[in-house]
Each structure stands twice: as structure tokens, then as C-alpha cells.
Write a protein that binds this DNA or RNA. Structure first.
Lengths: 334, 334
DNA sequence: CGCCCCGATGTAACCGTTTCCACACGCCCG
DNA sequence: CGGGCGTGTGGAAACGGTTACATCGGGGCG
């Protein structure tokens, strides 16, 4: 067995209680004692057993992150933000992906129980309300991008509607009229909100709404690729494509180029998210920036606040602003 | 407090020992008893306390992953592979990033102690041997891409040398002679091995080695961008650029295009990794494929094997084959 | 018929912390 | 001078599981 607190107690000549107090900085201890105990601890290379510790404190110093999947740069940015912030607060991060249904999320939450002090859920499901509603609410939760209004949990959202509205408006001012929209996965809250923003902008501009210009996608590159192929069969051909995320926009550009269609001259293509790679592709992708890593970091802070108040804090509901990023693919600069 | 095994025992009319046996499928129990206990457990919504469990079993059912950073698609692919495999084996994944020095790795390993049953380390440091050598070897470790030969740990490597050799050879057969190489971060084992493969191929082909064609990079897009800018100042100008990873290759292509240099006509650009996005950029990136997710998955399996044998198994040392992927950016198809 | 073994179950020790409570001591104050 | 208080420390009870060991019938076998 490894060295325990008892060994340190014996070696330093004090009781386990005192050793514990020294190591945790709790309770009054003589400086002299502190020194001796510290000495013994380092000499023996004592490392507290985290299981034992969390058994008695019921704190794990770990946060969970539930993601729908791990494809593309979007999610790695989320994790990056989460990990970074968690680390600076002395917390660990437990990730779990491939949760696309309420059932899977509930199951994952179940198995995480007791392993984490709080969980950030990025849920693609339409009605997160229902999902979270009948979960044991013992663990602090923060919902990311769920557009849900659930009592008892914190929620962080991206201003999807506003971003999509602004981008659509931008395309309209550039003179594009037949703007196709490439949707996210069915029921995905982000995707839906972006779609609504697009529709609203069209409507406000008095452009007639054409359902056939709303293409199906699933946020992954290849779906953008296929959607663009399909778009080329539409007559009259759209002069712009607004993809619900950057990955699909990139896939779409690939398909258009293959077909000899010029971007942005023939078809403007824009995305959403501003993943790091967006500026390096050709043409550089115009998109709607979301500070994804920051969102992840914020989620951690909210969670830690909840943990600190034993989940009896006033709930937070924030919306992250987006920013229009105009590069080349929208045709603004030629 | 939550419902404990004692509550289940009381409710079912059996002892905690029997309940435990039923729930873990250990020891002989009457079918009738099993039913009753199961009933009581579900009725009370009993969830075993993982801390208590791991305190007595010293198993956490969690694996750790240490990564140098989380930028780009490469690492998210690793995590994806790890998570997927871990999940199918009922394991959780603790990730931790930004570990670029032996000290940081050691520290992270320290704080993970007791939280995980094993750790996969993707270490960029040159001499992982030294690092891991003086770590407490209680926890099973698997080293990814360290090109290190450390006793007592499993190691998984990518055939960096072979892949780079093949790619360089490919460029040579296409008639390129002044092939620049864009290096990875200083001391990064993958980067170094790829560089050596490049050099070896040049040497074997009798091409004189020109140090000025070896550019500095750090695996991130912007470094590829800047390196390409620099490359354009070299005279005579190189006719090919082999980037040590795809992210940099993509950044480089962006820079070249900005400068009006045609890829691949004027300068061929190739990468390494075959991240998902590689095929969608323009020109589609020729690269060396590595099944990153599979590597992550394999790491988990190795780790679980080690855990199963209480870290007293025969160590594994595997090299993952790479595959030359010829697309457009190398100029083979025009 | 007695013994042994096996199946089924219970009792309690143990895992390594934290923390409540008790206690000793010195000091101040009434 | 005694009681209260604050400081420093120790003893031991949690925390909630797992599991070694004990117990108890009953069936097979010599």
C-alpha cells in the first residue's frame, strides 16, 4: 500500500487529525508543528488518497462535460476552454461524448454521479427542459446552447439568432437574393435558432421565403459537401449559401469548386462559429464568430460558483454575443 | 444523504454483503434473492457511491489522458478515439492539456494519482525516458508518440519516419527538387522523426541537403502561414513544401495564395496526419494518413490490459502504419 | 449415521480521509 | 482564586462501499 496519513502522523509525532489540519490549512496549528508535519509529508512523498478524501467530503474536484460528439474543431475548442479554466481552479475535467438523445444524456449523468461536482451539458436535443426536469438535481448543471428554459439549472447560450440575422442581412446588402441555408442536425437547438435568424432577416428584408432553399445538414463537413452538390441542381441557382456552421461551409466550398463554380463570384458561402481554420481556407471564410473556448471557460466558472454555494445560488442565464467576421467567401471584398 | 447500500439491505431484508454480491454479480446468491435485491435497489433508486467503492477496491474506472495542447483537429481525434473505446468498456476519461514540459507532466500525473486507473500520455518532450523514469510507476502508463524506449511502460508510435520518407519520395518522383520542410515544435518527437524521414529520403535520392530549407514551425496554422511567407523570400524559391502536420500545411497554403503563388503548380504543399478537413480545402491536401482516433482507441485497450494484469503484463511497443494520401496539393493530378 | 463440503447468507473489519468533540493548558478577568 | 475562553492537539466516529471469515443447513458419501 501507499503511504497514508497515518504514516505521516507517526513519522511526525502528531495525530492524524493534526496532520490533516496542517495539510488542509484548516484549524489552528503551531507554526512549528506545521513545519514538522510538512517535512514528514514530503519526506515520505505522501499523496492524499482522493477516493478517501471525497468519500468524507463528498467533493471530487472534478467537473464533467457532456458533448454530443467530438468531430471538428468546435468541440475541441469547448474542451480547451473548459480544461484551461478548470485547471486554474484546481479542478479536473471528465469528458464524455456521443450523447445525442435525452436517454443517453441521462445515462451518462447517472454514471458520472459521484465522480463530478458539476456537469456542463452541451445538448443537441430539442427539449432539454424535459430531459433535465426529471433528473436528480443534486449535482449542479449548466446547459450550453440548449435554448432551454429550465428551472434550477444555469444556462449559457450563443446569440445564434442575432448572429444569423446579421449574416443574412450582410449577404442581402451585398446584393445576394437567393440565399440558401444549410441546416444543422434535426432538432439541434443551435441550428434551429440560426435558421430562425436567417428566416427573420429574409422576412424583414421582404425577400420571399423559399423552403426549397433550406437544405439538410448535420454539422459535419461531408454533409456540407453533399448539400452543395444538391444546391447546384436547384434552378434558378442560389447565389449564396449560409451554412449553419463552418465545417459544413468548408465542405460546401470543396464541392462547389469541384463543380467549377466560383466562390464567391457565383455563389457566396458563409458559415458560423469561426473555428480557427476558417481564416486559412480559400476563399477565407466569412462567418459569425463565437468565442467557443470562452464559452467553455465561462461554463466552468458558473459551475464552480454553484458548487461553492452548494447549488443554492441564484441561477444564471447568459447569452454570448456573436460577431460578424467578413472575409472573402461572402464576396464583400472583390 | 443519498440512499446507501444499507438502505437497500434494509428494504430487501438482506445484509449489505448480500446486496453487494448481487449488485456486483460476485459470489453465489439465490435467484430469488437477486430479484428481491434488484427490486429494492431500483425502487430506492440506489446509486453506489463511487468514492466509497474505489476507496475499498482502489479502482476508479477512469483513465487519464495527458495532451500537450488542444489546438486543431488532431487532439480532438485522439480524445474521440479514447472516449469511444473507454465508453464501450465502461470507463470514463479524464483529460488534461497544456503539458509541454516534463515538470508539467509530472505534476499532472501527480494530481491524477488516485483518480485514474491508467494514463495515456502524449508527450511532446524530447526525452520522455527521463521524465517517466523517476515517476512512481504504480499507475499503468502508455506513451503515445514519444519515440521513447522506456522500461516499464507501454508505447505506441506512429511510423513518422516511414510516412515522411514516403511522402518526400513521392514529391521527388513528381520532379520536385527543392523541397522545403516545415518543422514541428522544437524537441517534439513526432516532428523530429518526420524531419529525419524527410532527410533520409533526400539523401537516398542523392539530393543535396540544404539546411535553409528547413523552416521552423510549431504545428499550429499561423506558424505555417508565417513560414510560407518566409519561404517566398528564399532564392531560388523551393518548388515544394512538406509541412510536418496538416494544420501548418493549411496555414501555408493560405499564405502562398495571398502572395499569388499557385499551389501546386508553383509550390507543392503537403502535410501529415490527414485530419478530417484536409480533403475539403483547396487544393485538396496530399498528406500522410494516420488513424488518430484508432491510435487513441488502441491506447485505451493497452491501458485496460495493463489494469487487468495489475500492471504486471509484458509491455507492448507498437508502431502505427501510415498511408500516403495523394490528392491535389502535391501536383500529382494535373 | 457421521462427516465433509458446498451453497447462501450475515457480521464486521477495512480502505484513508475529514471533522466533531473532548481535553489540557495558559491567560485574563471579575 | 476560580471560571471562562482560546489555542493546540488527540481520539474516534463518520463517509459507503467490498470482502474475509464465520455460520448454518442440507445433500452426498463412506
Amino acid at each position: 500500500m501507499a503511504v497514508t496519513i497515518r504514516d505521516v502522523a507517526r513519522a511526525s509525532g502528531f495525530s492524524v487529525a493534526t496532520v490533516s489540519r496542517v495539510l488542509n490549512g484548516s484549524g489552528p496549528v503551531k507554526p512549528e508543528t506545521v513545519r514538522k508535519v510538512r517535512d514528514a509529508a514530503t519526506r515520505l512523498r505522501f499523496t492524499p488518497n482522493v477516493a478517501a478524501r471525497s468519500l468524507s467530503t463528498s467533493r471530487t474536484h472534478t467537473l464533467g462535460v457532456l458533448l454530443p460528439d467530438l468531430h471538428g474543431e468546435f468541440f475541441s475548442e469547448v474542451i480547451r476552454g473548459v480544461d484551461q479554466t478548470a485547471q486554474t481552479h484546481g479542478y479536473h475535467v471528465l469528458v464524455s461524448s456521443s450523447h445525442n438523445s435525452p436517454q443517453e444524456i441521462a445515462a451518462a449523468l447517472q454514471t458520472m454521479r459521484g465522480r463530478v461536482d458539476g456537469v456542463a451539458i452541451m445538448s443537441p436535443v430539442p427539449n432539454a427542459e424535459a430531459l433535465v426536469a426529471d433528473l436528480p438535481r443534486s449535482v449542479p448543471l449548466v446547459l450550453l446552447n440548449c435554448a432551454a428554459d429550465v428551472a434550477g439549472v444555469d444556462t449559457l447560450d450563443i446569440d445564434n439568432h442575432g448572429g444569423a440575422y446579421a449574416m443574412t442581412r450582410h449577404l442581402l446588402t451585398l446584393g445576394r437574393r437567393r440565399i440558401a441555408f444549410l441546416r444543422g442536425p434535426k432538432g439541434n437547438a443551435d441550428g434551429e435558432a440560426r435558421l430562425r435568424g436567417y428566416r427573420a432577416a429574409l422576412k424583414d428584408a421582404g425577400v420571399v421565403h423559399d423552403r426549397t432553399l433550406e437544405l439538410d445538414g448535420d454539422f459535419q463537413q461531408h454533409s456540407g459537401y453533399h448539400a452543395a452538390k444538391h444546391l447546384l441542381t436547384i434552378s434558378p441557382r442560389p447565389d449564396a449559401l449560409f451554412a449553419a456552421n463552418d465545417s459544413m461551409a468548408i465542405g460546401a466550398i470543396g464541392a462547389l469548386r469541384e463543380a467549377g463554380v466560383r466562390v464567391p463570384e457565383d455563389v457566396a458561402v458563409v458559415g458560423f462559429d469561426d473555428i480557427p481554420i476558417a481564416r486559412y481556407i480559400h476563399p477565407a471564410l466569412s462567418t459569425v464568430r463565437v468565442d467557443i473556448a470562452k464559452l467553455g471557460g465561462r461554463a466552468v466558472k458558473v459551475l464552480l460558483h454553484a458548487v461553492g454555494h452548494r447549488n443554492e445560488h441564484t441561477r444564471v442565464r447568459e447569452t454570448f454575443a456573436t460577431e460578424l467576421v467578413v472575409r472573402a467567401s461572402c464576396g464583400a471584398n472583390y
